[in-house]
Amino acid sequence: MESLDEQNDSVSIEVKDSNHPDIWSVEGIARALRTHLGIAKPKAPILSGKSGLKVTVDRRLGPIRPYIATSIVRNVKPSENALKSWISLQEKMDLTYGRKRKRGSIGFYQADLIKSPLRYTVGNPDEMAFVPLGSAEKMTLREIVEKHPKGIEYGGTISSFKDWPLLEDGDGKILSLPPIINSNDLGKIGPDTKNILVEVTGTNVDTVGNTLKIVVTALAERGGSVYSCAQTYAGKSAKPVVTPDLKSSFKDLSVSYANRLLGAAFKPAEMIRAFVRAGHPARQVNKDVCASRASAIASTLCIKSTWWRISRSRWTSTSWILNGRESGPLGDSHPRQTDTRPLQKS
């Protein structure tokens, strides 16, 4: 914790774990605290159903910005504070995890104004025009990149291409020029917006998928229900890609390996408690029931990485033990627990 402002009833927290975009929001920190303090068990928000929204993806986006993932979150009615938190999450995600919107960038829209199917396509920068967010007049795509503050800031992600990405709805209304700016008509959400369309586009398929998961999870934490959308990539396969992908992944971890690496003697049950507190449900398996790899070692844990608990370097299981431990080799000084053998003369 950096500082506590009692007058304004606010705390400022330094998030040291730059590996976990899922805690880069008020919602994420609250979720992490709930499991860490033992207030609640780790619980993944569930998918409420299909939204019915379909997205077609133009193959010409291939070299420009090929991936899109969308979802609709219903019944949110955000408070001013919630909106502030989501905007700041969006900015932080776009900047770091999204690599200044290159790998991935987020857009929010009023779902009720948008007609299926969405077309994620390309447009001529001088012919296509719409009213960008925060502006009163219609501008061509090129004018937006050259004059709008967001265009000046992020135009470099697309300006070298002949055609630029464009998101339109079933009526041909323009939603946005990804990853620069939304339309002023459809892409402005406020306290009255009940149903929100979340869209993520980018150049890295994992970044795009994970970003969507993090955002919809934050929205769901405020009471929203998450509905999936279907993306069809032209020419690739007929089968649509359904997002958000809510499958959790599993990995087995040998208790003795983890103890050896940590120089600890955690019992399997202690380790499970630590994983749970760190937000990862885990259970002990004795046979090859774990999804990722057959294992016959008796003391093996099967750890669930819930779909909303995203770490950038995927599996960092020993860190999870350290983060979730009640007391252990880290923390305040424990001189008797450290071992200076490597420094002894050899």
């Binding site: 040291k16 730059s18 590996n19 983060n323 880290l330 305040d332 000084s333 001189p335 450290t338 071992d339």
Partner: peptide, 30 residues
């Protein structure tokens, strides 16, 4: 045969012997 504990021992030695620290603490990092 190395473990995290050995690493903590090395770090503590640096803090105490080299910097003259009185107290040492370790934070999980990434």
């Amino acid at each position: 045969s190395l473990s995290l504990r050995n690493l903590l021992g090395v770090l503590e030695m640096f803090a105490r012997e080299v910097a003259g620290a009185d107290k040492v603490r370790f934070k999980p990092d990434y």
